[in-house]
Simulated scan of single mutants.
Amino acid sequence: MERNASFFTIARSFKAIFLDSYGVVKNHRGLIPGVQGTINYLRDSGKTLRILTNDASRSPEQQAARFEHQGLKGLQPEEIITSGMMAHMYLVHKAKSGRVAYLGTPDAAAYILRADCPSVPVSDIDLDDIDDISAMVFLDDEGFDWNQDINKTVNLLRKRNIPAIVANSDKLYPVAQNDVSIATGGIARLVESILNRNFIHFGKPDSQMFSYAFDHINQYGQFGKSDILMVGDTLHTDILGGNKFGVATALVFTGNTSPDTVDLDISASGIIPDYICPSIVH
């Protein structure tokens, strides 16, 4: 493990750079200051770039427009890979009939759920009329009553043996320098523990997103896993996912991980990045 390395020095050794979005490119304050220069440097150096995000609330097109609005120029939708994309692909092949129930916002449902497969928010479900519910999807941490609708979700999954899909595996996300909020994955983990069930999770650290990104860049060139660097701010998603997929990993301190606790976090988790650097702008 190489510490306090310059990101620019690290990046020179790789042909493709995978970046987490929240905590690497941006955080609760907005864009990381100087990130436009880093993106420009990677492009000028001929690096292939992909953003890998567990944000399932927006499509790649919406993500690219959001980055543009925040001031980051030049990211294309095809360079952004989301956990919502993975969940959508699964539902296209698996949820071919009946209604799909969801926790989340209508906007997230419109992006992820199939137009020809009726979807219904959990709040609108009548638990006495659920025989045609074919899947349950955890989409977002907003758009529902946490008390009533999580309870209803538990009862739905007790009564119906159907696939439960988690479109965002993140358990929490930063909302201020020292504060976090519970994310979709955290809600899903709670329900899993109550029901003693394993749901289908998409997003880092699971391999689907990495496999998709790897196959996607190989449509435009020849890349081996040794050519790729995954950069993230969270050991349990970004770094673990990259390690499991077999690519090099770099941990940064602009999101969930603090330099004050990083040694304890690594020791407690057993998740070891190849590199540690302050941010992607140095």
Rank of each mutant, 00 (worst) to 15 (best):
K152N: 09
T153P: 06
T153S: 15
V154N: 00
V154H: 01
N155G: 09
N155W: 11
N155L: 13
L157P: 02
R158C: 09
K159Q: 14
R160F: 10
N161E: 15
N161I: 12
I162Y: 06
P163S: 01
P163I: 03
P163E: 02
A164Q: 08
I165F: 00
A167W: 02
A167S: 15
S169F: 13
S169M: 11
S169G: 03
S169Y: 05
S169E: 09
D170L: 00
K171F: 01
K171Y: 09
L172K: 14
Y173D: 00
P174C: 03
P174N: 05
V175Q: 06
V175T: 11
V175R: 08
V175G: 07
V175H: 05
Q177Y: 08
N178G: 11
N178T: 13
N178V: 10
N178K: 14
N178Q: 13
D179H: 08
D179L: 07
V180S: 06
V180N: 04
V180A: 04
V180C: 09
V180R: 05
S181V: 09
I182T: 03
A183R: 00
A183V: 04
T184P: 01
G185T: 01
G185P: 02
G186V: 00
R189F: 04
R189N: 11
V191P: 01
V191W: 02
V191Y: 01
E192W: 01
E192Y: 04
S193P: 03
S193T: 13
S193E: 13
N196T: 04
N196F: 05
R197S: 08
R197V: 05
N198C: 07
N198D: 10
N198R: 07
F199Y: 06
F199I: 05
I200M: 10
I200Y: 03
H201R: 04
F202I: 09
F202C: 11
F202Y: 07
K204R: 11
K204C: 02
K204G: 10
P205H: 01
P205I: 01
P205N: 09
S207Y: 06
Q208L: 14
Q208H: 15
Q208M: 15
M209G: 09
M209A: 08
S211H: 13
Y212D: 09
A213D: 03
F214P: 01
H216G: 10
H216Q: 15
I217L: 14
I217G: 11
I217S: 03
N218M: 12
N218A: 05
Q219P: 07
Q219K: 15
Y220N: 08
Y220D: 07
Y220C: 02
Y220Q: 10
G221L: 04
G221K: 03
Q222R: 04
Q222A: 13
F223W: 05
G224P: 02
K225T: 09
K225C: 10
S226W: 10
D227Q: 14
D227S: 12
I228F: 13
I228A: 11
I228L: 11
I228G: 12
I228Q: 06
L229D: 13
M230E: 07
M230K: 06
V231F: 06
V231C: 10
V231G: 11
V231L: 12
T234I: 08
T234G: 08
T234P: 03
